[in-house]
Write a protein that binds this DNA or RNA. Structure first.
Length: 104
DNA sequence: CTGCTGACTGGTA
DNA sequence: GTACCAGCCAGCA
């Protein structure tokens, strides 16, 4: 690899999100793990919010348990985008760990 | 330079 | 099954 600077983490996160194929969704933890920080899911969310620019399908990034997480305040839009791509959005009445059961 | 917040996760009560 | 807490990371005031 290469010099792994803290800023590099951001680039890797964006690259990982860009790598998500259409019709597929990844969780913040997955992106964090792909970036090299399995526990940096929070930081990933921060980067998404700070890097919500075209080219980065942040709408394909959802929280664990089937929750959409957030989208600046347009979560419904995010849900529509995922549904349009055929992504299995299970975030309907899920709220907590019981939700992750569908995934585990 | 220091501290807080935040689009999260996992575990325990 | 549901609710709360603690931990980790990066960006910003």
């Amino acid at each position: 690899m290469k010099g792994q600077r803290p800023s590099d983490f951001t680039s890797r996160v964006v690259a990982a999100v860009c790598r998500i194929p259409p019709g597929c969704i990844a969780t913040y933890g997955d992106i964090a793990r792909a970036a090299g920080r399995p526990q940096a899911a929070r930081a990933v969310g921060n980067i998404m919010r700070a890097c919500d620019r075209p080219g980065v399908p942040c709408h394909r990034v959802v929280a664990a348990g089937g929750r959409l997480g957030g989208y600046g305040g347009n979560v419904e839009l995010k849900r529509s985008l995922l549904r349009a791509e055929g992504a299995t959005v299970v975030g309907l009445g899920i709220r907590d760990e019981a939700a992750r059961r569908w995934r585990r």
